[in-house]
Simulated scan of single mutants.
Amino acid sequence: MSEKIRLEYQPPHDFSNLLGFFAKRAIPGVERVDDASYRRIFILDGKVGEFAVTRAKRGHALDLHIDFADTACFPDIAARVRRMFDLDADITAINAHLGRRRHLKACIAKHPGQRLPGGWDGFEIAIRAVLGQQVTVAAARTLTERVVRKFGHQVDTPQSGKVHLFPTPAALAEAELGGLGITGARIATLHAIAAAARDGRVDFRRERPLAEFVSMWTALPGIGDWTAYYLAMRGLAQADAFPAGDIVLRKAVARDGKPVATKALEEMSQAWRPYRAYAVLHLWRSTMA
C-alpha cells in the first residue's frame, strides 16, 4: 500500500540543514538523500518498506510518502519520521529562551530553524555513534557500510532491488567484527550494546527520565557521558541532553581564547535549560561557519 501523509510543524524549520546532516551519514543502499528529499528502506514487524520525505508545496509541512504492506503501521512510521525531523518542537519557545543568552543570541538569529536530527532506530544510532568515535564522519560512514553489508539481512525491494538492511541486535551480539577496520575496544563495545539491546537491558523508551537513561547506557563498557547524551539527543529527541565535556562546545564559549572547563560549561548551561540540546546544535554549527 502507498500513501502520502502530511506532517505539519511550527515554523521555522531548517529542512535543508537536516538533509545535509543525513546526507553525510547516509548508509549506501539503505538511505538516499539529495537536496530535496530523504529516502529510506526499513523493516517493521518483519515486513520491508520504503518511505520518502519531501517539503510540502504549501504551508508549513513535510510530505511523507510511504510504501508498506501494513497500513496499521502507518501511524508508527509517521511518528518515527516526526522525531527524525523534530517536527513537534515548540521552536518559538526554544528560540525565545535561548535567544536571550549571550553565547546563543547570534546563533538563533542566524539559524532560527535549527532542529535536532533524530534517527529511524535507536539501536542503529547507538551502533553508529560508537563506530564514529574518534574518526571522521566519512570514516564512520565507511565502517557502518562494511558492518551493514556483512551482517545486515538482505532483502529484495520493488524499487531498489537487493539491499542489506541494518543488522539486528541478535545479529551483531556474536558477530565476528574483526577485519573491518574497527579497533578491538570498539568491537567489545559494539558486542556489549548489541547483547544489552537484544536482552532488553538498554532501550530508547521515551518516558524514561534523562538521568536514568544516561546511567543505563554508561553502565556498558566503552559508553561514556558524551555518547549517552548524544544518544539521548538523537534517539529520544531529548531537548535538555547536554554533553558538557564536549571539547567543541567548550571552545565555542571560550574565555580569553581558552576552552572553558567542563564544570564551568555545566554551570553556564543551567541558564539554557530545558533546551540545552538545541544550544549544543547551535554551538556546534557556529564552529563550522
Rank of each mutant, 00 (worst) to 15 (best):
E3R: 15
K4L: 12
K4E: 13
E8M: 05
Q10N: 11
P11T: 15
D14Q: 09
S16V: 03
N17H: 14
L19Q: 10
F22K: 04
R25H: 03
A26K: 06
D35H: 09
A36C: 06
I43T: 14
I43C: 06
D45G: 03
G46L: 06
G49D: 05
E50D: 07
V53L: 12
V53F: 10
R55W: 10
A56L: 06
G59H: 07
H60V: 02
A61C: 04
A61N: 09
L62E: 11
L62W: 14
L62D: 11
H65A: 12
D67Q: 09
D67M: 05
A69E: 15
C73D: 15
F74S: 05
P75A: 04
P75E: 12
D76N: 09
I77A: 03
A78Q: 08
R80F: 03
M84L: 05
F85R: 11
L87F: 07
D88H: 04
A89L: 13
T92N: 12
I94Q: 12
I94N: 11
R101F: 00
R102T: 01
L104G: 02
L104W: 04
C107A: 13
K110M: 08
Q114L: 09
Q114C: 04
L116C: 09
W120P: 08
E124D: 08
I125Q: 14
I125G: 03
I125D: 03
Q133D: 00
Q133H: 00
Q133Y: 00
Q134R: 15
T136R: 13
V137K: 00
A140P: 13
A140N: 10
T142K: 08
T144V: 12
E145P: 00
R146F: 01
V148D: 04
V148L: 09
R149K: 14
V155T: 13
V155L: 05
D156F: 04
Q159E: 15
S160D: 08
S160T: 01
S160K: 10
P167S: 08
A173G: 04
A173H: 03
A175E: 05
G178T: 13
I182R: 07
G184P: 15
G184S: 13
I187E: 04
H191V: 00
I193W: 03
I193C: 06
A194F: 10
A197W: 02
G200E: 14
G200A: 07
R201G: 03
R201E: 12
V202R: 02
D203C: 09
R205P: 01
R205E: 15
E207C: 01
E207D: 15
L210E: 13
E212T: 14
S215T: 14
M216Q: 15
P221A: 11
I223L: 11
L236M: 13
L236P: 00
D240F: 06
P243G: 06
I247C: 07
V248R: 11
V248W: 04
L249E: 05
A252W: 13
V253P: 15
D256W: 01
P259I: 00
V260S: 09
E267S: 14
E267C: 05
Q270I: 07
W272L: 14
Y278M: 08
L281C: 02
L281M: 15
W284T: 02
